[in-house]
Design a protein around this nucleic acid. Structure first.
Length: 557
RNA sequence: GUCCCUGUAGCUCAGUUGGACAGAGCAUCAGCCUUCUAAGCUGAGGGUCGCACGUUCGAUUCGUGCCAGGGACGCCA
């Protein structure tokens, strides 16, 4: 809303300058900023500063001249009753102040749109795929996956709200060596359970959960002797393990309120035929060559550091090849924008997959790889060290059980995705002001409380025709409500839900200040109606934002 | 060694495509609950924005060099 007004005003000012200046003078565009401080108005233009060199005059002089032109141009336009004053400030800023009337439009718009306030069709229905977590089914999900899950889910929600059609996808790596190791690890533990002796393969999985799985395996299959166990096909252990762990993973994610529209198996996508097709395609385009008995992909052609092996000298494929097949498959399913959310350990992998995408004839910009930094878990003030292979790590399940879904999701989203994150388990559980988790939700609960009171006194809110809100705290709050759509656009541009989290925190802060300074339900019934509307408009925006982040909207706390 | 990221208050981090005196939370100190939720609000102290040049009317933001920390560099997945 605020940015709509800004866009209209910008256009109007450009035109009025063009009309009033000698033709042939080409000035830089009029850019209106949202100034950080209220005393600089709602919009601020730096055009005078930018034009100083060109016009060879002091910025302050130009600013004064432009101010006159702008002021005159407002007469008999829709802006007349929306702009309160235009002011020049050193060293040459031209600041615009809005009237309360201009701001009231924001409230009306919120009540008109309600749960859809902030929604737009910027995405024009484009299909976007957000692929995230995609952890190998070789163990329970860790906190690293948990953060990726919180980020990916929120991002998909936001993209949907902005008019894209987002699909959450989990890619199941069920074809690689890791899965074979999993099967072998289970088999070894099963042998031990039956009294035999076995040593885990090198790099085998040592976690306790492997023993649990081995126990369940032999129980279910009714295996009681080592001989019976030895007659089992090794594939059974592997398949059993994948199925078992995937069901655990699904359940964990579901309890974390993350639901994937699509689960894709590597074994179904990277088939022999599809791999051969990709090799043919790359061969035809001249991006493959043989060296040292291996087959190489010429990724340097697209800016990678070095070329990459796709088929090893022993005839087997590297991981890159099925991955190229998978990405080709993504495009074939009609996605115009592909977002991969990876952990930092895959950072170096970006150039080669981007190269692969280009080799397939796609724009490198259509593939966005987001690296979500790790979270360090703190318990008792000390960082917890983790190792997946040794089975020493904090799982998503433990985090959910210990601090709850809301607190966990909040913590994972409270920083930019590329920033390291400290997750203090004790802090996340505390019900004290030190804990940042409940600040936003508390504002929502407070408003619900006001409504309860309003219901008791028979007060009804209005949804248009505002005229009495004029206190600084009230106007600040309305302005903040009006920039909700802008925060969503930042999330889109940065592909990071952080801007929304940050916005909601600021909105809650602005509300708490308003709440503290002014009684909503007071002596004056007319004013009470309008303040109740202001509070409820805030509630709508808070709820919309919290929903997009996957956080709950509690009515009491 | 090559490449990438980071360096802002005691701690954890913001800083909106260069903008007006550098912000928030926590921690410390001082205030505010007979009235809609004090999981809240107000105020104070605390920073040569790693260092040095450069570009600009203007640099935390852009460029170069240096210093410090982290990460990635497999015919592993």
């Amino acid at each position: 809303m605020l940015s709509d007004l800004r866009a209209q005003l910008t256009k109007h000012l450009e035109e009025s300058l063009k009309r009033n200046l000698p033709s042939g003078v080409v000035l830089p565009p009029v850019d209106l900023d949202f100034p950080a401080q209220r005393l600089h108005g709602e919009f601020s233009a730096n055009i005078a500063l930018k034009s100083a060199k060109l016009l060879r005059k002091a910025p302050a002089v130009i600013a004064e001249e432009f101010r006159g032109i702008f002021q005159d141009s407002l007469t008999d336009t829709p802006f007349q009753n929306k702009i309160a004053k235009i002011e020049v400030k050193n060293p040459g800023f031209i600041n615009f102040f809005l009237t309360p009337l201009a701001l009231f439009g924001i409230l009306e718009e919120i009540f008109k749109a309600k749960n859809d306030y902030g929604r737009c069709d910027c995405g024009r229905g484009q299909k976007v795929q957000v692929e995230f977590v995609s952890a190998n089914p070789t163990g329970p999900l860790s906190v690293a996956h948990a953060r990726q899950a919180a980020v990916g889910d929120a991002l998909a929600h936001i993209l949907d709200f902005l008019g894209f059609k987002a699909t959450r996808e989990y890619y199941i790596n069920d074809g690689g060596n890791q899965i074979n190791l999993l099967g072998e690890s289970i088999r070894c533990r099963a042998i031990e359970l039956l009294g035999g002796e076995a040593s885990l393969p090198e790099n085998g999985y040592q976690g306790e959960y492997i023993k649990d799985m081995a126990r369940e395996f032999i129980t279910k299959a009714g295996i009681k002797t080592l001989e019976k166990l030895a007659s089992q096909d090794r594939v059974n252990f592997k398949n059993y393990g994948v199925e078992y762990l995937l069901s655990v993973i699904r359940k964990d994610l579901e309890d974390f309120n993350v639901r994937f529209e699509c689960w894709t198996n590597e074994s179904k996508v990277a088939t022999k035929e599809n791999i051969a097709a990709v090799l043919n395609l790359l061969e035809e385009k001249g991006f493959l060559y043989e060296k040292d008995g291996a087959l190489w992909f010429k990724s340097t052609h697209f800016g990678d550091d070095k070329d990459r092996v796709v088929k090893k000298s022993d005839g087997s494929y590297t991981y890159l090849l099925p991955d190229i097949v998978y990405h080709k498959n993504k495009y074939e399913r009609g996605f115009t924008k592909i977002i991969n959310i990876w952990g930092p350990d895959h950072h170096g992998y970006i150039p080669r997959i981007k190269a692969a995408v280009q080799a397939l004839g796609k724009s490198p910009d259509s593939l966005n790889v987001l690296i979500v930094q790790l979270a360090t878990i703190y318990r008792d003030g000390k960082p917890v060290s983790m190792s997946t292979r040794r089975g020493e790590f904090i799982s998503l399940r433990e985090v959910i059980d210990e601090v709850g879904v809301d607190a966990a999701r909040f913590f994972f989203l409270m920083r930019h995705i590329d920033a390291h994150l400290d997750f203090d388990l004790e802090l996340a559980k505390k019900e004290t002001p030190e804990n940042p988790v409940y600040y936003i939700q508390y504002a929502h609960a407070r408003i619900h409380s006001i409504n309860k009171k309003a219901g008791e006194t028979g007060l009804r809110q209005k949804e248009k025709g505002f005229s009495l809100l004029k206190e600084p705290e009230e106007l600040e709050l309305i302005k903040r409500l009006g920039s909700f759509p802008d925060s969503l656009m930042i999330c889109y541009h940065e592909l990071d839900p952080y801007a929304l989290m940050s916005y909601l925190h600021e909105l809650a802060m602005t509300f708490h200040r308003f709440y503290d300074q002014h009684r909503v339900i007071g002596e004056d019934p007319e004013l009470s109606c309008e303040r109740l509307a202001l509070a409820n408009a805030t509630k709508i925006v808070l709820a919309n934002g919290l929903r997009l982040l996957g956080l709950s909207t509690p009515e009491r706390m």
